[in-house]
Amino acid sequence: MKKNLSSQSIDAALQDFLGNKPSMETPKPEPQPADTQEQPEKASEIVLEQVGETAQEQTDETPQVVRHISGKQRRASLEEYKETFLPVPVIEDRKPVFLSRSTRDALDRIVRMFGERRMSVSGLVENITRQHLATYGEDIEAWRKL
């Protein structure tokens, strides 16, 4: 089952799952030279017009129905997740991989909650990486040839 999720949406889903709120800081604009002050104003007017058009487009569409996910569906998806990412892998010729503390803590929490006795964060990272390579391996080879 291949899901098209951006890295940001995966991070947001993981943060939501773990009960952490992702940082919602907005980047600060870079200072502009004094002679180009008129251009940003025009650009902001264009952006505002585009935002207005987007808002109109969204209100013209029919509202999306929020569907309830049953407990049975959640258990099935948990079992699928466990089968895909939490079997204890055999890792030969190990090499270190570095993760940020927050990512390591998040993965450790997942392993402790859902993994079997011998499962580790290294095993989870191995399984995630194997799944990623299986899903995108052909695309990566095609991109390499570009």
Results as ranks from 00 to 15, higher is better:
L78P: 02
T36C: 08
K28A: 15
K28C: 06
T62R: 09
A34V: 13
M24K: 13
E45P: 00
G71K: 08
E92C: 00
E30L: 15
P87R: 07
S44I: 11
K42Q: 11
K42C: 04
D35P: 00
S77G: 04
E61P: 00
T26Y: 07
M24Q: 15
R75E: 13
K42P: 01
E57K: 05
Q50H: 09
P29F: 11
G71V: 01
E49N: 13
A76V: 07
I69H: 04
P87W: 04
P29R: 14
P87M: 09
P29V: 11
V47F: 14
Y81S: 08
V51W: 06
E25K: 15
R75L: 09
E45T: 10
T26H: 12
E41H: 09
T54N: 10
P27D: 13
Q37G: 00
L86C: 03
E53K: 04
V88L: 02
R74N: 00
P29T: 11
V65Q: 07
Q73T: 08
H68G: 06
D93Y: 01
H68M: 09
Q64R: 10
P31A: 12
E38L: 09
E57T: 03
M24E: 12
E80S: 06
E38Q: 10
A76E: 08
V51Q: 12
A55H: 04
K82I: 03
Y81T: 03
T54V: 06
L48K: 15
E41S: 12
R74S: 08
T26Q: 14
E79F: 05
T59H: 04
I69Q: 06
L86R: 00
E57C: 08
E30Q: 11
E45A: 14
S44M: 14
A43I: 13
E79S: 07
Q58D: 06
R74H: 03
E49P: 00
E45D: 15
T26N: 13
Y81M: 07
P40L: 04
L78N: 02
V47I: 15
P63M: 02
D93G: 05
E38K: 08
V51R: 13
P40R: 10
A34E: 14
R75A: 13
T84E: 07
E80M: 06
Q32V: 14
G71D: 12
V88N: 01
E25L: 15
Q39R: 15
V51Y: 03
E80N: 09
Q32N: 06
T36D: 07
M24G: 10
V88H: 03
I46C: 03
T84D: 05
P29W: 12
E30Y: 08
Q39V: 13
Y81I: 05
E25D: 15
K82T: 01
E57N: 10
P87V: 08
T62K: 13
Y81C: 02
G52F: 02
G71Y: 07
L78Q: 09
E49D: 13
E83Q: 13
Q56S: 09
P31F: 09
Q58I: 13
P87K: 05
P27N: 11
P27I: 07
V66C: 10
Q58H: 10
D60Q: 10
S77H: 03
D60P: 03
P40T: 04
R67W: 09
L78S: 03
E25Q: 15
L78Y: 01
V51G: 01
D35M: 12
A76C: 05
V65Y: 02
T26V: 15
D60Y: 03
P89Q: 02
Q64K: 15
Q56C: 02
